[in-house]
Nucleic acid binder design. Structure first.
Length: 453
DNA sequence: GTGAAGATGAAGGCTGAA
DNA sequence: TTCAGCCTTCATCTTCAC
């Protein structure tokens, strides 16, 4: 700790102190003047809409202005990414060395973000001028990316530093994610009912069969793949082979698979993976949210594995309720099965107009079904391809709707997650490069709305 | 064509002992 | 302070049965 400590170190420290019921008297200021200057405040101006990148794209430190006039796909080129990396290296050694700790971008171990419902942290943060809303935006992705990814994301998103949160604080399952947003952080509140925080509470039928030698209280991160029936059968045979408790060796072998595949105890010697109906409430969705419409179990699991943890996101979005008593116009990018929409709805925030961009037809149908089932009064516009949302279309749409109050989404993590053994290529990866479309659209919205003021 | 099953590790944070 | 060992991770691809 100390003056040079990162906000997460401070948050960690405070959280630990509060957990220990010790007196904590920290009032750290996020982005104090020195830090803010170091990270640069960019002039918010919008001279033109060429490519919609005028607000900050061409003004990134060390960024080649010639790039901004090229096709939007240019940002995915290897040379561009190389330039970015060089830019970062230079900046980190020259500009920020003194004020930004070397581990600044490492998520703090407890991952409590700017506090939790039962342990709110009293702090204020000063956003860079260019980032101050409205409109408000909220960006999400996996916390444990290859090195350098969050620095890049943060730099594009107006130098706002990410808030890392593990959803194990909101759920019985872990989900380590980073969030960058320009929302206020005071007076957040939690969704009701308060979620059940242990496996045995969330899945009470497992309690009867849970052996004393399985110490798990929390599930690991819910992913897109699931264990096969044959694997659980093999584990059953191992366990059934011994009369009494299994040997220590067998216990460790079984526990390794339990952790790897998030297996739970459903009978004597019987383990099973989580079913979609069980995952939905763990992630804060209504039960059967992804059911129906001919969606297979595999597709449901994949869609759920790619979604938000609703309680976590809703806690961050809760500050919008008092700010927008009449509801919100939402631009939802990479919507998936509608984690953002469900979070806002559960918070009691009216959805006036939602423009949703989602590639998967299955996910679009799930969101559409939820929209009608919950009797939404607003209008839902679904778009399949993010690249089809050109800046001209965006401008037209915003004129019709009166602008957006919230731009929210988590871009694909396929090339960032540690689970990917084949193509963990960072933001250069085919899927994860779509982050730059998130930025392109966000920046265009900022520009259009600043013109309208 | 569709869905299930199985094979495919590296990266990076955390921890505790030296 | 260092380092070995431990742990976790919004996945991808091929094969095979139906």
């Amino acid at each position: 700790s100390g003056e040079n400590a990162s906000i997460w170190e401070l948050a960690d420290s405070i959280y630990a102190s509060q957990t220990d019921k010790a007196t904590a008297d920290y009032h750290p200021t996020y982005g104090s003047s020195s830090t803010c200057e170091q990270w640069g405040e960019e002039e918010r101006s919008c001279d033109s809409m060429d490519g919609g990148l005028s607000r900050s794209w061409g003004k990134r430190k060390g960024f080649d202005n010639s790039i901004r006039n090229k096709d939007s796909t240019i940002h995915r080129s290897a040379s561009y990414m190389k330039r970015q990396r060089v830019c970062y290296a230079r900046k980190s050694f020259n500009d920020d060395e003194e004020t930004v700790p070397s581990n600044f971008w490492v998520p703090a171990k407890t991952m409590v973000g700017f506090g939790l419902p039962n342990n709110p942290i009293t702090m204020s943060r000063k956003l860079p001028d260019a980032a101050i809303g409205p409109p408000y935006f909220y960006y999400e992705n996996v916390a444990l990316t290859p090195k350098g990814v969050w620095e890049t994301i943060s730099r594009f998103l107006y130098d706002i530093k990410p808030e890392f949160v593990d959803s194990k604080h909101f759920s019985a399952a872990a989900r380590k994610r980073g969030y960058i947003h320009n929302l206020p952080i005071d007076n957040r509140f939690q969704l009701q009912p308060i979620p059940l925080l242990t496996i045995q509470e969330a899945l009470p039928y497992t309690k009867k069969w849970w052996p004393s030698w399985d110490p798990r209280q929390k599930l690991n991160c819910i992913q897109t793949c699931t264990a096969s029936a044959k694997l659980t059968e093999r584990l059953r045979n191992i366990l059934a082979a011994s009369d009494g408790p299994p040997s220590y060796f067998d216990q460790q072998k079984v526990l390794e698979q339990c952790r790897k595949w998030n297996l739970v105890w459903v009978g004597r010697h019987k383990l099973a993976p989580l079913e979609p109906d069980e995952i939905e409430p763990l992630l804060g969705f209504p039960k059967y949210h992804t059911r129906g419409g001919g969606v297979s179990r595999t597709e449901r699991l994949k869609a759920l594995g790619n979604s938000f943890q609703v309680d976590t996101v809703a806690y961050h979005l809760s500050v919008l309720k008092i700010m927008f008593p009449n509801g919100l116009n939402v631009l939802s990018l990479f919507s998936g099965i509608g984690g953002a929409e469900v979070a806002l709805h559960r918070l009691g925030i009216r959805l006036k107009n939602v423009v949703s961009i989602e590639k998967s037809e299955i996910s679009r149908n799930i969101l559409k079904n939820w929209w009608y089932e919950t009797d939404q009064k607003g209008k839902l516009v679904e778009i399949a391809d993010v690249e089809q949302l050109t800046n001209d279309k965006l401008a037209t749409m915003m004129r019709t709707l009166g602008g957006f109050d919230l731009i929210i989404g988590g871009s694909p993590c396929n090339n960032l997650t540690g689970s990917n053994r084949v193509s963990r290529h960072g933001l250069e990866g085919t899927h994860s490069a779509l982050f730059f479309d998130y930025f392109r659209i966000l920046d265009a919205v900022f520009c259009i709305m600043s013109k309208q003021k």
